[in-house]
Design a protein around this nucleic acid. Structure first.
Lengths: 293, 293
DNA sequence: ACTGTTTACGGAGACCGTAAGTATC
DNA sequence: GATACTTACGGTCTCCGTAAACAGT
């Protein structure tokens, strides 16, 4: 259960071969083989079937544990070394596409109080942001999602992190004016389970979240995948009738031919949260303070 | 960041001395000294002030990480070795005092389908149950707490575990019939922030949870601490007017001189959940199945 | 002076690389 | 027979214990 061994285990599974994992980590194939053997020997279980490399049942379970364990260790290390070294005047901010609109204001505040601040901003898929903040790759993360009113977002990663509410507004489904439901004052998501949805996990509320909040196991069928994180493109696709999407209120407001119909049931909202590590530097602090106001 | 080093670090902090930690772990004092030095050297921070032993700021942070990291590692190891060895026909069930009433029924079912089952039941403080289930010390855990209706309990420990709803019923405050509020149909907890409460973290809903659900930072002053996990004693104390307590409906129902007044606001209920590891044996499975019905 | 931590040193073991062996495609 | 993993073996490095030095109480 040495983290070192866990790291090579996940590398082997990811790359699908001992040799490529060895290359990636700077070991010889033999060393990797010994490390895996040592793990299996320690736990008295076969973790991998060889040739081709595939996880056994036990290996799959270990894989589920290994990621969070390594993440937590790295988060601890990063927090501790940050405490040791002097605070650099650098602020790296990452945001999911729908959360990015909340960057500009607080950033201005941070740059005002720290004029020689070296700022880096990037828009990222939701998935990795919490982990990146925990490991110190980002100083500030902004993520969005659907949640019950005034409930915190459910961040899957089991990492120690602080979340601050940034914004909460109605969740809407933009509909073409010609759509039969466009005249309704509000929508029931349960009634849209069998509609066709655009599968845009970054540019809109992801379909699995919709299934989760409605309690539906299936449904919310994707018409097609839409990978980029550009809400404007998504709204164009919605406008052209390629499928539905759930968005925060306001994005499609000015768009001709579209009406934003708020989601009434279940009672959920679109929420944006700011994520930061437990210990933060002065630049991050002024960013956070600006958000809190 | 070797788990081995983390383990001795927490032992040193807990025991308050290098020598006693060494005795506990089966090392020499010198070895412990070297391990701490190695950690500090690796992270480039001083973790401890010596003589007397006390954590620095960095040490305190490391301590917050070390527990969850070690717990997760142990959880992974325990799950994996369980997969390797044959399933023993033993069922260890742990429950918090207020959750214990739900043990008997499912246990009968489990013993019926597994006649030669070796059963061990124990009532424990809420705090350690999730961790004990994760590390395999318990096969089944039953915990209770206050939550919004049909919301899962917030288990603080960041461990991989499966929770199943067992029971959800109104939260009540048992009041002496002579109490001015006893005639009310329902109570608002916010109005009871300044009352005197019995501090019985195991036998009733703990005061910090009440503060959390009401959003009050202070308040819910404890009249005195009541350590045991015996609801009957607690009800006697409430009956004698020593302070208030929040309990699941039904416990004080037959008690002369007490009326159970349900909590109306905030909208919270008393909830009981069953916890079990991801992978379970047949005996646990029949216990869980009996609960689900 | 005594208790408790650090430093010095030596031996056992862990771990990786080289190289030969073995199994699968 | 080629590719990919395993086993064998040797060198190096880590890590712990013994023992001596050192620092507070």
């Amino acid at each position: 259960m040495d983290p070192h061994l866990l790291r090579t285990f996940v590398a082997v599974v990811r790359t699908g071969s001992f040799s490529s994992a060895a290359r990636e980590l700077g070991y010889t194939q033999a060393a990797v083989s010994q490390q895996i053997a040592s793990l299996e020997n320690d736990l008295k279980v076969t973790l991998l079937r060889r040739r081709p490399v595939a996880t056994t049942e036990a290996g799959a379970r270990l894989l589920e544990h290994a990621g969070p364990i390594l993440l937590r260790i790295q988060a601890a290390r990063s927090e501790l070394v940050r405490l040791g070294s002097a605070a650099r005047s650098r602020l790296r901010v990452g945001a999911s596409p729908l959360a990015a609109v909340h960057i500009a204001g607080p950033l201005a505040e941070a740059r005002r109080s720290h004029p020689r601040l070296d700022v880096a901003v990037q828009v990222l898929p939701r998935a990795g942001i919490a982990a990146a903040v925990a490991t110190g790759e980002l100083d500030i993360g902004l993520v969005d999602g659907a949640a019950a009113p005034s409930d915190p977002l459910r961040l899957d990663d089991a990492v120690p992190i602080t979340a601050v509410a940034v914004d909460e507004r109605p969740l809407v489904v933009p509909l073409p004016v010609s759509h039969p439901l466009a005249a309704r004052p509000g929508l029931d998501l349960d009634g849209l389970v069998d509609a066709l949805w655009l599968d845009a996990p970054d540019a809109a509320v992801p379909l699995p979240s919709l299934r989760h909040v409605t309690g539906a196991r299936d449904g919310f069928r994707p018409s097609f995948a839409c990978e980029g994180g550009d809400p404007a493109l998504l709204i164009d696709l919605v406008s052209a009738g390629h499928g539905l999407a759930a968005l925060p209120a306001g994005l499609a407001a000015g768009h001709p031919g579209l009406v934003e119909v708020p989601v009434r049931a279940p009672r959920i909202v679109h929420r944006t949260e700011l994520l930061h590590p437990r210990t933060i530097g002065p630049a991050s602090a002024s960013f956070v303070a600006a958000v809190a106001r």
